[in-house]
Amino acid sequence: MRTLEDPTSTRFADHDTLRCARGEIADEVEPAARRVFGAQGSAWLAPIWRTLARAAEHLPLCRDEDETHAAPLWLKAGDWVATQDAVARIESRRRIPPALSWMAEAQYHQQGLEAVWPLLSELAWLSPRRLDALIRRLVDPLLRTLRKTFDARFDGDGTIEDLIWFPAGC
Rank of each mutant, 00 (worst) to 15 (best):
L45K: 03
R35C: 01
W44P: 00
R129Y: 07
T149K: 05
A46Q: 05
T149V: 12
R50S: 15
L119Q: 14
D157W: 09
W165F: 15
L119T: 07
L75A: 09
L45R: 03
V139W: 01
Q84S: 13
G23Q: 02
S92A: 15
A133Y: 02
I164M: 07
E28D: 12
D151G: 00
R129C: 05
R144V: 00
A82C: 08
A56I: 01
A39H: 09
C20F: 05
H58C: 04
L52Q: 08
Q110I: 11
C170T: 06
L123Q: 09
E161I: 09
L75V: 11
R35M: 03
P7C: 09
S9I: 14
R63A: 14
W165V: 04
P31T: 03
H58G: 05
F37C: 06
T51L: 05
L134R: 09
Q110C: 13
A46N: 07
A168F: 06
E122A: 15
W165H: 14
S121M: 09
P31R: 06
P97G: 12
C170Y: 01
P7M: 10
A104Q: 12
F150M: 05
M103G: 01
F37S: 03
A46P: 07
I96G: 03
V29W: 02
G23C: 01
R129D: 12
S121Q: 15
D79T: 05
R50A: 15
T149P: 00
E114H: 10
R50I: 00
G156R: 02
M103V: 02
L142T: 15
F150Q: 04
A71L: 08
H58D: 13
V29C: 02
D85E: 15
T68K: 00
G41V: 00
I96A: 04
G41H: 04
E5Q: 14
I90M: 14
E105H: 11
H109L: 03
D151S: 06
L52V: 10
L59C: 04
F37P: 00
F154D: 02
Q110F: 05
I96K: 13
A86T: 08
L100I: 14
V81P: 01
E57D: 15
R136S: 13
L59W: 04
L100M: 15
H69N: 11
A133C: 03
W74C: 07
G38R: 06
H69T: 08
V139P: 00
R34I: 06
L142H: 12
L143Y: 10
G23V: 02
Y108M: 09
G78Q: 10
A32M: 14
I164A: 10
D155M: 11
L52K: 02
G158W: 05
I160K: 09
R137Q: 15
V139Y: 03
A70W: 04
R93D: 10
F37G: 03
